[in-house]
């Protein structure tokens, strides 16, 4: 067998699997979204019905807030960890990347332990402080799994910055603040855009966390879930899934064009 026949043969398992379990279902999902009473106008309906529109807006607002917070925290911590070598640095880094492997449900439970009825905050503060099931709890949950992802992307980029750039700025008399503003942040910008896009996409699509917190905040994945399981409104669930998929996919395309790597989504 020559390589002209062998190499295409190597694609065969992938082709069979991908066509059967990815291409076909995705096509079916898109078609199903147009099979409701409204037909393809269902996409218009999403923008017109307050329930869906407010869900969309709430999801975007929370995701944007999480993205900004995660970028601020992770860039600060990431730069600190790249620029300083000290005892315990490895431990801090391990702690900060630990939640990478946590499914969304576990993250939700972590927030319940912090801000639930039996949570830490409620125990150590006077009065009744329970935030796990509010929008703030959801925000904290999303932040929990976003910090490690943003941190890894930013640190990888920060490690590639030539220290001579900073030294050159120092010899030219730049203050530490100017160095951060004029040298470090511009060099980190592509990585921050990429990391931000990943964080945003992950937050948009996060299901497990919202599911565990069982919040009364309507976020897109929860609405898709209830439309499908409770209302059996398959067309709407499909249409919302298509929109969600397009948004997260576009976000990750942006991320990839700014930085090559992939960090696992999901949460």
């Amino acid at each position: 067998m020559s390589s002209r026949t062998f190499v295409p043969l190597c694609f065969l398992p992938l082709a069979i699997f991908t066509i059967a379990f990815l291409a076909l279902p995705l096509v079916r999902l898109i078609l199903a979204s147009g099979e409701g009473e409204a037909g393809w106008a269902i996409y218009l309906e999403i923008l017109q019905k307050p329930r869906y529109l407010s869900t969309l807006i709430q999801t975007v607002v929370i995701s944007v807030a999480v993205t900004i917070a995660a970028l601020a925290i992770s860039t600060t911590a990431g730069l600190f960890l790249v620029r300083n070598r000290f005892r315990g640095r490895g431990t801090l880094l391990s702690i900060l990347t630990l939640p990478l492997a946590f499914p969304g449900v576990v993250v939700g439970f972590m927030i319940i332990l912090l801000g639930g009825r039996q949570g830490l905050i409620n125990q150590i503060t006077p009065g009744h402080v329970v935030f796990a099931y509010s929008a703030f709890g959801l925000f904290l949950g999303y932040l929990y799994f976003s910090i490690p992802r943003v941190l890894l992307t930013v640190m990888a980029a920060a490690e590639k910055i030539d220290p001579a750039l900073e030294e050159a700025a120092l010899t030219l008399g730049a203050s530490p603040y100017r160095i951060v503003r004029d040298v470090l942040l511009p060099a980190l910008m592509p990585a921050m855009i990429a990391a931000g896009a990943i964080a945003f996409a992950t937050a948009m699509g996060a299901f497990g966390t919202a599911f565990t917190l069982a919040t009364n905040i309507d976020v897109l994945p929860m609405v898709i879930y209830t439309e499908f399981t409770l209302s059996a409104n398959i067309a709407m669930a499909s249409a919302l899934s298509v929109i969600l998929g397009l948004v997260t996919w576009a976000m990750l395309l942006i991320a990839r064009s700014f930085a090559g790597g992939v960090v696992a989504a999901g949460g």
């Binding site: 991908t18 379990f21 990815l22 079916r28 699509g205 298509v242 969600l244 998929g245 996919w249």
Partner: peptide, 18 residues
């Protein structure tokens, strides 16, 4: 083939179920 990284699992599951 990288689409499943981008598309939320919920949407993929819906697609598979249908």
């Amino acid at each position: 083939i990288s689409l499943p990284l981008a598309i939320p699992g919920l949407a993929l599951a819906l697609a598979l179920l249908q």
